[in-house]
Design a protein around this nucleic acid. Sequence first.
DNA 1: TCCTGGACGGAATTTTTATTCCAAACAGGT
DNA 2: ACCTGTTTGGAATAAAAATTCCGTCCAGGA
Lengths: 276, 276
Amino acid sequence: MNEQLAVGSAPQSVSDLLERLDATAGDMPKRLRDCASFTRRHLHLIAVSTVSDMARASGVAPSVYMRFCQALGFSGYSEMQSLFRARYTEFRPDYQERLATLEKEGVVGTGRLLADFAESGHRSLISLANTVTNESLDRIARGIASARVVHLVGLRRAFSVVSNMAYLFDQLGVPATLHYGVGMLNARGAIFPGDVVFAVTFAPFSPEVVRLVEAAAGQGVTVFGLTDSERCPVAEWATEMLIVREDEVAGFRAPTAAITLTTALAVAVSAVQRQS
Amino acid sequence: MNEQLAVGSAPQSVSDLLERLDATAGDMPKRLRDCASFTRRHLHLIAVSTVSDMARASGVAPSVYMRFCQALGFSGYSEMQSLFRARYTEFRPDYQERLATLEKEGVVGTGRLLADFAESGHRSLISLANTVTNESLDRIARGIASARVVHLVGLRRAFSVVSNMAYLFDQLGVPATLHYGVGMLNARGAIFPGDVVFAVTFAPFSPEVVRLVEAAAGQGVTVFGLTDSERCPVAEWATEMLIVREDEVAGFRAPTAAITLTTALAVAVSAVQRQS
DNA sequence: TCCTGGACGGAATTTTTATTCCAAACAGGT
DNA sequence: ACCTGTTTGGAATAAAAATTCCGTCCAGGA
């Protein structure tokens, strides 16, 4: 009486999927474990790839990948894929209709809210892994590591991001200055050649930050930027830009991806410094 | 001998596409202009949608959307789509090869670091969803919503968390004060009955925050707390405590779960206020 | 009013993709 | 070494998508 059908129901969210994956991957046959391993590291590809793509990338036959989806509780690849595609569309079929329900559910019911934000965090992290390249992160880490001091600049939504960096740099012994809005004008005088500016600004971009970046670049100071849009004016003066897009819930965004990225960056800087 | 083939070559990049779109949209027939209009506003959908999806969303028949793609210089929808999918896959074929290089870099190299932190973020979010109950979040939201003003207190690692809350409360029109370390002693005098204190502190706990909480509670002010351990001394004075545990990478933690939780909380507060 | 050329969208066709099936290979136990 | 239940991947099938075709509709000109 061997009942192994873990099937029950298909995961309804990325959280569900990840939990199920971790819970069952250990007991899977070899090739399915290959699927699990690749898939876990490249979740973001699912939305834009075909089964054969994923199968080839995992080093298995399409039919094997198919079984993998089913082992996770999905009816097939399409169902699993729709989980990831839903994030971009926010309303696939009949979006008029779903939009209405979204509005209706609204911001009410805080229970749902937390789950929504957690889910949204997962999505932001998935997209983060996909958009930021190791190379540019590495170049920035080296740039910061060799600076006399790094100036952290960010206002509004970006401020929590830079304040987190400031804390980490402090802990790690990396010389850093956190610029507060109030002191910004004075701060310009404190930036010298050999320093580096790390500026964070999200659309709509803070003019103060842009002005500071412009002034710093004018002095020949290296600028790195973090933003959420290709159109960010900081890009014009920056040696290197990082772009992360946060997923949103009812118009609100938590800076999950930005904080994660900058935390990794801070640790990377310290690693580079320790190497030399 | 009217050859009107504007085709020439297909756009090779998103910029090309946008240029072509803006240049030609004006001269297009009505329905094609509908396509252009919707597509311009929802470029990101192309990667994950079918022709019929895009056609329906644009309010036209699939064959019309097809002609739209061709008017832009593509051979069809698939070619246009591949332009957007390429962004995510960064070179479709030969995942094998890319995977190999990824694995080879190994544990060193910042590439792996970012992936590790992203992974760690997923874990933090999963644990967040499992440990925090909707009820306590709801009670805190109501408590804050009915306060004259909410005092946000947090130092070190917690500071980015409260600064994010401060930004959100400001945006949402919820009266809030962000307490900076420097002004903290003075700030005590600014807390009155009818206020609420929201204190964030992670182990090892900041004595300044604990003292402030103690003083506030002594005055009969309601205190809510967010921390990462049952042992947190704030619990003694707090009406309600939130506990989140962050996953760590090599001893470093990003405040992913805490930020996600407090963002949800801020939105919940605003929802409660709007209801009444 | 009639004619003409382009625009339109439903239906047919072709191509691609997902999914299932099955024979061969395999691992573990006897 | 032999049997047995599982895993595997190629081939067959089903489903869905993209793309083309073509009859109808509409606007503008004679």
